[in-house]
Design a protein around this nucleic acid. Sequence first.
DNA 1: CTTGACCTTCCAGTTGGTGGAAGTCCTATC
DNA 2: GATAGGACTTCCACCAACTGGAAGGTCAAG
Lengths: 156, 156
Amino acid sequence: MNIGDVSERCGLPAKTIRYYEDIGLVQPPRRENGYREFGNRELNKLAFLGRARSLGFSIQQCRALLSLYEDRERSNSDVKAIAKTHLERIDRKIEQLQSLSATLRDLVKRCQGDRRPDCPILNDLAQHISNEGDKRTSDHSSQKRDQQMLEIQSVQ
Amino acid sequence: MNIGDVSERCGLPAKTIRYYEDIGLVQPPRRENGYREFGNRELNKLAFLGRARSLGFSIQQCRALLSLYEDRERSNSDVKAIAKTHLERIDRKIEQLQSLSATLRDLVKRCQGDRRPDCPILNDLAQHISNEGDKRTSDHSSQKRDQQMLEIQSVQ
DNA sequence: CTTGACCTTCCAGTTGGTGGAAGTCCTATC
DNA sequence: GATAGGACTTCCACCAACTGGAAGGTCAAG
């Protein structure tokens, strides 16, 4: 199979498949003309990877899962541990986003949106400056004051 | 104020502040020795940015919010629109993650974790290969089949 | 023989920074 | 005045996980 067929069958873009080869997740042999030749084994691995990625597993986790997938002697507790870790991360992320959502929802609700300059949202954003005249407690404690600051990034 | 003081007061690492200057979010003037000289205006902008980022606004959104923040004639409905868009994105993300969490929770629950090779999690991951013998419907529809595939990335 | 689809590699860009090296500057102490 | 230490400067590289595009080779059909 050529990369295009594999792409169609496993649902991953060809670019992504090449990338996965680059980082060593699959190793399709080459034909004489330089084209990659995919067999069923590689196709299955790619489908596996696509599904695992769609469940939000990181590439590192996918690597681990894949090697367990290919190991006839594997122990399902190893797999379960990875999945559990991932699940916990997701649940933590959900909590963070929910707290964020609540804060924002409140701000949006309080803003009239009546085309006037006064805006509770901007007020909130501007209000969060450390007004401690002395610098007693300023060993970057201000970074901890915002619980929401922790790795909220990347909402997309 | 030097960058270190500002960093302490607004809670952003100095590196980040330099980066924000790099991408044009702040423009502190320089002293003779080349050091950045921050006044209250720049400090306030940085604190504003820190808070907005901690609420998950993207840099692009921060840029827009910042220019509204500095615009005496601004209309709060512009601000509200940005916040609403962001809020909707967050809520969509939460839904996706909840669906993900449910799927994973179910898989984890079904896996005994008894150190034997049989594993429902791996079985699920492996099962998602398109088994359509014909390729009638294969114009990359397989990418749409997985609703969860959409931008779940980056759970951290 | 040409056209167009498909394949190849390589380079750059995305987001929002972070880490480190190399060099300059400031302040304090001896 | 010498020196040590911080704090500051720039620049380059790196993270994840791809994606886009350019430049070129290959293959099958008409």
